[in-house]
Design a protein around this nucleic acid. Structure first.
Lengths: 244, 244
DNA sequence: TAGTGGTCTAGACCACAAA
DNA sequence: TTGTGGTCTAGACCACTAG
């Protein structure tokens, strides 16, 4: 029996263990996994816990499950790391594409929001926002241009420029005590122009993918909105949909 | 042979009932749902079943759940119908945007695939594909241009042009006996040009969203690939991501 | 027929929030 | 302290696949 710690969720531990076996090739694409009961016995957990882990692997497209037959590693299991689900963290997306992430440019200011932002964040007419503009590089090439709007009022601790370098979500947790529970993103294809084009070093008219996002805290209050431009060159975004 | 309808899953029934209450306003945004135990008693199912239903509503962003507090309808609950998850069916996406879907143009031919398609579908050098080209309209305006490639060999029943009008997935099930279990889509922003631009009635250089998809059956064999161009005008695509 | 995954139950215990 | 959601268990039964 494999030793399991109580700290992390049991199902996450099982999921991680199986993912590891898929990544290192001890479970090859097409290969059948051991049956649920056997996995449960091996890891010393209940069948339900194993099923929770397998359900997650299925949802991200790493395995397919056939009733009456078994669970199998998919052909695409090795490419599941550049998922849209990973979009919580740009660095992960860039790394999943095999590139080294870094920050290419950073700028910020406090200002009155435009009408659209004010409505999205449910702000009063006098309330200001902290605007953060960043460019993310993949192997020194600019790939993501990101503008974040945070209600100034939320930020309760003084910060410096260096505090803005990590992900916005981390910044919000540390300096506003706000945790993003979910966000809604609208996908819009656009063409590059103006400052955005220049900062992404692409010519005017080049196709970009724009994410217009609003993020909410546990109380369903909008605490952040972003406009994120993705330059597709050497950055792939994937979706996996599996039938329920 | 008569098709036998299996009773719908209990969790799906509960989910549907709650969704209905959200849609018709008897559960308003911000409002708290009854506790799990109460829902379980009310619908005559176990707490686990209720939790499965609530987990699904949470995943699509219709509710947020706060440990120790309760489950609440989100502000965005009313807009969850234009999800990327609905992408199985273009008609649904178009209808969710408040428009009437129809088919604007349809063309098909049998041909030898190009190298890219042949590799995606794991075809031999002699095998042909059925190519289906369609344009979907929303309120008579072209919004989606779709090219499907199906290995000719899979199609086991004769078909007519009319059989191609429904969704490809339905066509595959009826005429090839193949069911799509999951698909992988890559999102690519492009600019309109040539035939695609003309059929979508947009000017050359207009931004489009391209989905490069490969769909697999239960045996993890690729059975379909598509190139789908979305024109964003009056068609919104949304993603909801919630923290696990 | 044996073995697999799919659904559902009843109940235990824990973590957290609010009164 | 009470009540909420979060995790986990053990077991029943069903649906489907394969030999």
């Amino acid at each position: 029996m494999a030793a399991v710690e109580r700290a992390e969720l049991l199902s996450k531990q099982v999921e991680g263990a199986l993912k590891q076996r898929i990544r290192d090739g001890s479970l090859a694409p097409g290969e059948q996994l051991p049956p649920e009961n056997q996995l449960a016995a091996f890891y010393g957990v209940s069948r339900s816990t194993v099923r929770a882990a397998l359900a997650h692997l299925q949802r991200e497209g790493s395995v397919v499950r056939r009733q009456g037959s078994g669970t199998y590693v998919t052909r695409g299991a090795l490419y599941v790391d550049c998922h849209l689900e990973q979009l919580w963290n740009f660095d992960d997306v860039i790394r999943a594409g095999g590139h080294e992430p870094s920050i290419g440019w950073l700028d910020y200011e406090e200002t009155l929001p435009d009408r659209y932002t004010r409505e999205n964040l449910l702000l009063g007419p006098e309330e200001t926002v902290l605007v953060i503009r960043k460019v993310f590089l993949a192997d020194e090439q600019p790939v993501i241009h990101c503008v974040d709007y945070i209600p100034r009022q939320l930020i309760s601790k003084p910060f410096t420029r260096d505090d803005l370098v990590p992900q916005v979500f981390s910044f919000l947790e540390e300096f506003a005590g706000e945790r993003v529970i979910y966000y809604v993103a609208e996908l819009i294809p656009v063409v590059a122009e103006g400052d955005t084009a220049q900062r992404l070093k692409c010519s005017s008219g080049a196709p970009l993918l724009l994410f217009d996002e609003v993020a909410y805290n546990i109380e369903d209050k909008p605490i952040l909105c972003c406009l994120v431009h993705h330059r597709q060159k050497s950055l792939r975004l994937r979706i996996v949909q599996s039938r329920t």
